[in-house]
């Protein structure tokens, strides 16, 4: 029983990380039909921002303030990654709208360069980020010990989700994003500046990748190729969840998170991966364009 609970908890934990990563992907793909392969590198940037913040705190501030570095790193990671995203959108991606496969290749190239850049600056070996002391230890529930760091990630992604929900469904700017997503030309005709919406949305998606990178530092050492290990699973979330609504991404992320953990628990890591892949293929037989899609009469 307790093992089942632990599997559930680990699944939720993995799902929450995937959700953080996949949200940005789903939005940019749904909005602009752009596949951002450099999303993984934006995660990596977020992680290294946390690392840099930690080092800054160690060298310039007295040690009793050390724990605050992590709190501060989250917004900084968000801003830095969003900045990178904006530069990417402005200099490259806006030329590739409606060419998803081309955008995929070009952003892969960008990702390759960013990885190499990280390797030149921080070196190829992984670096460790020390968790703040308030995230050490865990919550005891019965016989289980739920690590605070994982609970924190869960809370963080729920907070982000609420934030995104509020933005999309309760603000004028979010409404414009949804309008462009559903019918770009009509939105344009009604006076929405689609350029601005694209730029802003891409920046938001990238920013959440940065937050995800910040959260991932709690789970282990970080390296230049950090993003690649998460990005494919995150894309799977988009494929399974569909791009129509936030709910799709949430269901996709937690679904893949749970099944992944369960399969790996029941078999082993490599067989588990095969099983989850087959499960996704089988799922797509039932829902070819993902769980939630925005319906439209247009073809192609």
């Amino acid at each position: 029983m307790s093992e089942l609970m632990l599997t559930l908890f680990n699944g939720a934990s993995l799902g929450s990380i995937l959700l953080l990563i996949a949200l940005g992907l789903a939005i940019t793909f749904g909005l602009m039909n752009v596949i951002n392969m450099a999303h993984g590198e934006l995660i990596m940037i977020g992680a290294y921002v946390t690392y840099v913040m930690q080092n800054l705190f160690i060298s310039y501030l007295p040690s009793q303030y050390f724990d605050f570095y992590f709190i501060l790193a989250i917004p900084v990671a968000l801003l830095v990654a969003a900045g990178f995203g904006m530069i990417m959108e402005f200099s490259l991606i806006r030329f590739l709208y409606k060419r998803p496969l081309d955008s995929l290749l070009a952003t892969w190239g960008v990702g390759l360069m960013l990885q190499q850049l990280a390797r030149s600056i921080f070196g190829a070996p992984n670096v460790g980020v020390k968790s703040p002391s308030f995230l050490n230890g865990g919550l005891e529930v019965g016989t289980l010990l739920l690590p605070y760091s994982r609970l924190f990630i869960l809370g963080l992604s729920i907070t982000c989700l609420i934030g995104i929900y509020y933005y999309f469904y309760r603000t004028a700017s979010g409404r414009r994003v949804r309008a462009v997503m559903q019918n770009r030309q009509m939105a344009e005709c009604l006076g929405v500046s689609t350029r601005k919406v694209d730029l802003l949305t891409f920046a938001i998606g990238s920013g959440f990748a940065g937050v995800a990178g910040c959260a991932i530092t709690l789970l282990g050492a970080i390296g230049p190729a950090l993003g690649t290990s998460y990005i494919i699973d995150a894309f799977m979330v988009v494929v399974v969840g569909g791009v129509g609504a936030l709910f799709g991404a949430v269901a996709g992320a937690f679904g893949i998170g749970f099944f992944n953990t369960a399969f790996e628990y029941l078999t082993n890591a490599s067989i588990g991966k095969v099983l989850i892949f087959l499960l996704i293929i089988a799922f797509l037989q039932w829902r070819p364009s993902g769980l939630v899609t925005s319906r439209s009469r247009s073809l192609d």
């Binding site: 793909f29 596949i35 998803p100 995929l104 894309f235 799977m236 797509l284 070819p288």
Partner: peptide, 15 residues
């Protein structure tokens, strides 16, 4: 067979 979006296929092939 069931007209999965071309981009989805690309992602699946990478998976």
């Amino acid at each position: 067979r069931n007209r999965i979006n071309g981009v989805y296929f690309t992602i699946l092939s990478q998976a």
